[in-house]
């Protein structure tokens, strides 16, 4: 249970609740005292434990990409972000900014340019968190 943190993140008019799982990605129960609430995405990430499961990262990315899904084709690790979805390059960079604050990392633009799949993006975030 060491890594179980529940996090709430308000953006303009959306409200995301995140259950950060254990390293194997399994969801655990929320507890009220573990709630961190903030409205700019900065404070809440500080409360995030250093170790976040890869499954959590992938889930978060897929959540951001859901509005750009084409037909019934599911979004998963192998999804090529710019090709398989209707998202444009600017929206990709905006999504990355949200992910940066969510996971408390900065992904340089030249690195973003080299990322094609959801898996690659998740790996990048995980690598940066390990630094």
């Amino acid at each position: 249970m060491k890594y179980c943190v529940t996090n709430c993140h308000f953006t303009k008019n959306r409200r995301f609740c995140h259950n950060i799982g254990t390293p194997d990605g399994e969801m655990r129960l929320r507890t009220a005292h573990q709630l961190t609430v903030d409205n700019d995405g900065v404070l809440d990430t500080i409360a995030l434990g250093r170790v976040v499961s890869r499954a959590t990262i992938v889930r978060e990315i897929c959540h951001h990409l859901a509005p750009y899904q084409v037909g019934e084709k599911p979004i998963n690790g192998a999804t090529v972000i710019a090709k398989d979805l209707t998202i444009d390059s600017l929206a990709i960079m905006d999504m990355v900014m949200e992910l940066e604050d969510r996971f408390d990392v900065s992904i340089p633009m030249n690195v973003i340019a080299e990322i094609h799949t959801v898996d690659q993006l998740a790996d990048t975030i995980q690598d940066l968190r390990a630094r």
Binding site: D40, V42, M93, M97, D101, S106
Partner: peptide, 13 residues
């Protein structure tokens, strides 16, 4: 690195 438009807290982070 990009920060959110006109958002000093985003730059700060």
């Amino acid at each position: 690195i990009r920060f959110k438009h006109n958002d000093p807290s985003s730059l700060d982070a």
